[in-house]
């Protein structure tokens, strides 16, 4: 590399602009790919983008904190997007209110199942307690799950990764699984994927059906509330 090109690289690689553009660019390409594959669940835009960005960081020898300086502008929008979930919720309020009983039942049963099944399955593999704690809130939306882990003495960065993987696994699994179970109720399908796989599952549900997306968003919000309250108790009972 010539001196001039190198100094340009040194400048750009330290500015937020470059990594912001890389993040958006990776997403635009991944989203186009997903469209080209007819929104096939395995071609998940989050998964494809993360692999692409991680490769760019690895090839250029860039550290995650430097990358995050640029990407944090995108990360920030998670908060307002969570607030904006109120809009489809309000639009569908009649449908939602009529489903309040099954929603509350599915919420409590699903929330406890998500925590207990993950921790019990992981205990077969002999893991340290800090990893089990980091795994427990894997079905909750990232900002909330990371906060829970931090309070309980786990590793928030590990939680972020496990949450992302849960989102991708759930959104890959949900459509074939629900079709195999002959589930035709879009509310139930959406609610299940939002509860099990938070925002990534909700994004997937919105791609499939707007009513499913609405219920997924509600499930994500409610599960964040319930898990934040239940997880310390359930975890104490499970791993002491």
């Amino acid at each position: 590399m010539s001196d001039q090109a190198f100094s340009l690289w040194v400048y750009l690689s330290q500015t937020p602009l470059l990594w912001l553009v890389v993040t958006l660019g990776a997403y635009v390409i991944a989203d186009r790919m997903s469209q080209a594959f007819g929104r096939h669940p395995l071609c998940n835009p989050v998964l494809v983008s993360v692999v692409a960005v991680a490769l760019v960081l690895w090839v250029t020898g860039t550290s995650y904190p430097v990358y995050f300086e640029g990407a944090k502008f995108v990360h920030f929008l998670l908060g307002p997007a969570t607030v904006a979930l109120a809009i489809p919720l309000y639009e569908n309020r009649r449908v939602v209110l009529r489903a309040i009983v099954p929603m509350v039942a599915a919420l409590i049963v699903g929330s406890v199942t998500a925590i207990v099944s993950a921790v019990v399955a992981a205990q077969f593999f002999d893991m340290p307690k800090s990893v089990l704690i980091s795994l427990a809130p894997k079905s909750v939306t990232a900002p909330v799950g990371m906060g829970i882990t931090e309070t309980l003495g786990g590793d928030p960065a590990l939680t972020a990764i496990l949450i992302m993987l849960t989102g991708v696994i759930g959104s890959v699994m949900v459509t074939p699984l629900m079709n195999a179970l002959h589930m035709k109720d879009w509310r139930a399908r959406g609610f299940a994927v939002g509860l099990a796989s938070h925002g990534i599952g909700t994004a997937r549900a919105f791609q499939v059906h707007s009513l499913a997306g609405t219920f997924a968003g509600i499930a994500m919000g409610l599960n964040a509330l319930v898990t934040a309250l239940l997880l310390p108790i359930v975890l104490k009972w499970l791993i002491g």
């Binding site: 039942a105 599915a106 699984l177 139930a188």
Partner: peptide
């Protein structure tokens, strides 16, 4: 390996239990 197995198993069980609870109670 253990984490991925736990995530796949747990996500599967959670999806099934949640959707079945929702539909049955509904």
């Amino acid at each position: 390996v253990g984490l991925v197995v736990a995530l796949v198993v747990s996500t599967f069980i959670t999806l099934v239990v949640t959707v079945v609870t929702f539909v049955v109670v509904s």
